[in-house]
Amino acid sequence: MQIENIIAEIKNILEMLGGSITEERTVSMKPEIWGKIDASRLRDFFLLVCERIGIPHLTTIIGEDLGDRIHIMYPLDFYDESQGDKCLYFVLSVEIPKEEPKVKSISDILRVAWIYEAEVSEILGVQFEGLKKEGRYYIPDTIPEGIIMRKDKQDIVEKYLNKAPHPLEGGGND
């Protein structure tokens, strides 16, 4: 599929799901588009993208604490497979309330999402519904899960920084 058609298709899908384009710019001589969507329609977006355009390249999942809410971004690369250097960078954003930080997992749609969802859940305490995860993946066992990048929980982080056990005294991972 040509890049112009991919852009049009993404806009269609976003419109259909009640999302919108927030910014369009050119970076590194290539189109870079930022869009947002309601968290409840996130899975629908990825299902439709995989069905209509193909599997995108998910670079990472970025989570950030914006004070009253949590902002999650999914940067995606789309390529025109007939011409490898024709490509589009698209960043999809969702926002979820801080009181109940829940969003549906996309790890069954894009397998690589598992590691990035695991990271966001461990540093920000976001619950990815449907994410099959046992134990820790990113952060050490000595730091409680879901607090390190949360602005409202920095007092707990400071406490652990000062009192984290030395690896020879029972600290560290399994």
């Binding site: 134990g135 993946y137 050490p140 730091i143 991972n173």
Partner: peptide, 8 residues
């Protein structure tokens, strides 16, 4: 599994 040299 990662996280064995987590430097924050």
């Amino acid at each position: 599994r990662f996280g064995y040299n987590y430097r924050g």
